[in-house]
Structure formats: C-alpha cells, structure tokens
Design a protein around this nucleic acid. Structure first.
Lengths: 132, 132
DNA sequence: TAAAACAGGATAAACTTAGTCCTAATTAAA
DNA sequence: TTTAATTAGGACTAAGTTTATCCTGTTTTA
C-alpha cells in the first residue's frame, strides 16, 4: 500500500526544483537540502529525466531543471514516472494478471480505486507544494 | 503502492465467507474456491481470527465463519487487519518517521490521502461484494 | 586540458513477500 | 476412549524488491 522511498525522494526532489524553476541545480544541493542519499538521488534524477519531468545539463555548471512549470506537474506525474502506475492490485493494471479472471466481484473495486487515485493525485500540482 | 497478495487473498476469503455467513467453512474449501495456497490461507485466517473478523472452530467439522454480517465488514477492516493501515507513506502513520519533520510541504498530502482512503475503503462492504 | 558534473551499468546488503512444513491442541464421531 | 479431522502456532526459506553504492565513461566550462 505504501509508496517506496524512491517515490518519496522523487517528490521531495521535484518540490525542491519547483522552488527555483529558473535555476540549474546540482544533485549535491538537492541531496543536502532534502536529505536524500546522493548516489540514489542521481538514479532518481536519471529516471525523471527519461520521463521528461526534468532536463539535465552535464559538465561544469551542470545540474537539473524542471521541463515544465510547477503548476503543470502533478504528484501523479511523479508517481507514475517512478512506479509505473497507481494501481493497488496487479489486476487493475492488466486483468489477465488475475487468476480469478471470470467473475471476480472484487475486480471492479480495484479499477475504480485506480481511477480515483489518479484523479486525486492529478489534483495536487507542485505549484500547491511551494506556496508556504 | 500495491496491496500484497496476502491482503488480496484475505479479501477474496472474506468475500467467500460472506456468501454463506451461516455455514462453517473449512480452509480447504476456501482454498480451492478462491485459488489460494492452502497453508498460506491458514496463516491469513489465523490473522483474521485474531483481528476479530472471523471466528474459528477446531476439530472435526471445524472451520471458519464471519463474526459479523457481511454489510458490517468493510474492505477497510480487512486491509487494516492484514496491513496495519492504509497510509501511503510512513510519515502518515507516525510523523516522527519523517526525516524532514519540520516544514515538509508534502506531509499534509499523505495525511489527507490516508483519510480519504479510509473513507473510501470503508464504503465498500462485503454485502456489496456478494450481490451479483 | 583539467576539473566539474551527469550517464549508465554492475553489484550487493537488507528487507519483504509469499509461501512451506512440522508438531501441538482441540473436537466430533465411531 | 480412540481415531480422524481440523485449526493453532512457530520455524524456516526461496525469491523478489528495495535501497542503495561504486566505478567508468561522457560532456561541458573555464
């Protein structure tokens, strides 16, 4: 039921980048500010880059920057980038993964929960997470 | 983000018991009907018994039975019985588990999500899961 | 050309999941 | 009263996932 540390770190990281969307920020700075192990954070940022949430700059003065405005990035985007989906049961990702395929009365709940979670997490943008 | 197989099995199991709330049903029958490994199911039922969702009867003609009516048991009850809570992040269980204790702008989201999930899962009772 | 950054792959320890297996206790019925 | 059926509970384990680390390579600026 819980998200992983990796996802938690990813959200913190994007939240930090959202506070200075114009700057290019190094892994080291984010790591220190958000208490995220540096080499693990490097991996996470690699993933966020591949998923198009941040862009990276290599070399001296390199670092990371959001590709979009904070209000255009949702928590859902980050969770999906790291975990693939917000489904709570594998059958809500692909119903063939269920061994009770026919007539499982619980299945519709997992489908509904998935949609509901997507809607909820889409509502939270990183613009909301920086106004304090 | 996902529930465990154990929780999935527990829900299926309670759903099966809900279909015949007056009968006492053996592990073996549930195992076969719901495609749950028998010895694993035994452990799950042990837990459900401890948590007061089912009662057990030992010996010949023994088995399990719900302690309450299907409409009085929610999916939330079963998830909490098996997983402890529906919190998506450990900081939503105990805020001391957060290393950013002070001023984490994401924290309120996990608290809110937890409350919503509790409400949502409480709405689904096993009475809903048998009328089909 | 040197130093500063990220990219990507390999590796691994710790933890969790998803079970199994064995013995003991309990109960109904022969 | 014995036997067979059934759950209780503890120990154990294989496989998978999580949470990282480390090393080498590439890119870029000064």
């Amino acid at each position: 039921m819980q998200i992983t540390r990796e996802t938690d770190y990813a959200i913190r990281c994007v939240q930090y980048l959202s506070m200075s969307p114009d700057r290019i920020i190094m892994i080291d700075e984010i790591s220190k500010a958000k208490m995220i192990p540096k080499s693990f954070l490097a991996k996470i940022l690699q993933r966020l880059t591949k998923e198009g949430i941040v862009r990276s700059f290599r070399g001296v003065k390199g670092g990371f920057q959001l590709t979009k405005k904070p209000k255009e990035i949702s928590i859902l985007d980050v969770i999906v980038a790291i975990e693939g989906s917000v489904a709570m049961n594998k059958c809500a990702i692909d119903s063939r993964l269920c061994d009770l395929s026919n007539a499982c009365t619980v299945h519709p709940i997992w489908i509904e929960m998935r949609k509901w979670l997507e809607d909820k997490f889409r509502e939270y943008t990183f613009a909301d997470l920086i106004k304090r």
